[in-house]
């Protein structure tokens, strides 16, 4: 079951440094939302506030509200661990667990959380690997270490690992930035399939990718170096790429930035 994310007045700090300021937006369920913007404008930071990974960084602090359907992620008594079970994440660099086999990597979320039935594990792993378009490539070597795969395969392994725990929302931080065009295409197709089941947010520096995969696009920018990043606008991807309402967005998309 996908869920809606409703952010209002979100500000995040690293120690005393304000990285993003006063961001409000809505992410629709069963849709793909792309974040674009120049380097350092706080896309990753914002993404990490959506599953409470921001506070893992020393000095990380968040103000504001993030509603997941009707629950405030930052409300009193909310356990970040259960938030992260609802909101999964795929990182920029593939990071499979080096001590675990391919099978164990996919099963890691379930095993480490301890809530699974042994009999279901094989099915879940197979389903997740198929979901991540990786099954055919690894089905003969599930017991080999996950770090022995190619970069693109590792990234899809990480996606399989993230969807194995059945999150409601999947956050992806530049999932294709280290991949070749073919793996990139595979992952983009995958995103298209996954949005049937999950709410997906993807950060990307690739305009074509944002245009290809996303339904909505959010443009972030910062006024100057050292200033906090802000949300400039969020709209349907088609609108953003054809007729954005803010001049800065058009400049950025057409490469006239800076």
């Amino acid at each position: 079951m996908a869920k809606r994310i409703d952010v209002s007045g979100l500000t995040a700090y690293y120690g005393s440094h304000k990285a993003i300021e006063d961001i409000s937006m809505t992410v629709e369920p069963r849709s793909v939302t792309a974040f674009i913007g120049p380097s350092g404008c706080g896309k990753s930071t914002f993404l990490r506030t959506l599953n409470r990974m921001h506070e893992v960084t020393p000095g990380g602090r968040v103000e504001g509200k993030v509603m997941l359907d009707s629950e405030d992620l930052y409300g009193a008594g909310v356990d970040p661990v259960s938030v992260r079970r609802e909101v999964g994440m795929v990182f920029q660099r593939p990071n499979p667990f080096p001590t675990m086999s391919i099978f164990d990597n996919v099963a890691a979320g379930l095993r480490l959380n301890g809530n699974y039935k042994k009999s279901q594990l094989n099915d879940i792993v197979e389903k997740s690997l198929k979901g991540a378009n990786l099954w055919n490539e690894v089905k003969d070597r599930l017991n080999k270490p996950g770090s022995g795969l190619s970069g693109g395969q590792q990234q899809r392994l990480c996606i399989a690992r993230a969807i194995a725990v059945e999150p409601k929302v999947l956050l992806m931080d530049e999932p294709c930035s280290a991949l070749d065009p073919i793996s990139t295409l595979a992952i983009e197709d995958l995103i298209g399939e996954l949005k049937e089941r999950f709410t997906i947010v993807i950060v990307t520096h690739n305009m074509q990718q944002a245009a290809r995969v996303s339904d909505r696009t959010a443009f972030f920018n910062l006024a100057a170096v050292g200033q906090p990043g802000r949300l400039i606008e969020i709209d349907d991807t088609e609108r953003i790429f054809s007729n954005p309402s803010v001049q800065a967005t058009e400049d950025y998309i057409s490469g006239r930035f800076g």
């Binding site: 990974m53 893992v56 990182f91 979320g109």
Partner: peptide
């Protein structure tokens, strides 16, 4: 690497189990 800790935490694994 910190990435491994974050990968585990992002799966909803508690810190001590990570």
């Amino acid at each position: 690497p910190n990435e491994l800790r974050e990968a585990s935490l992002a799966l909803g694994v508690p810190k001590w189990r990570t």
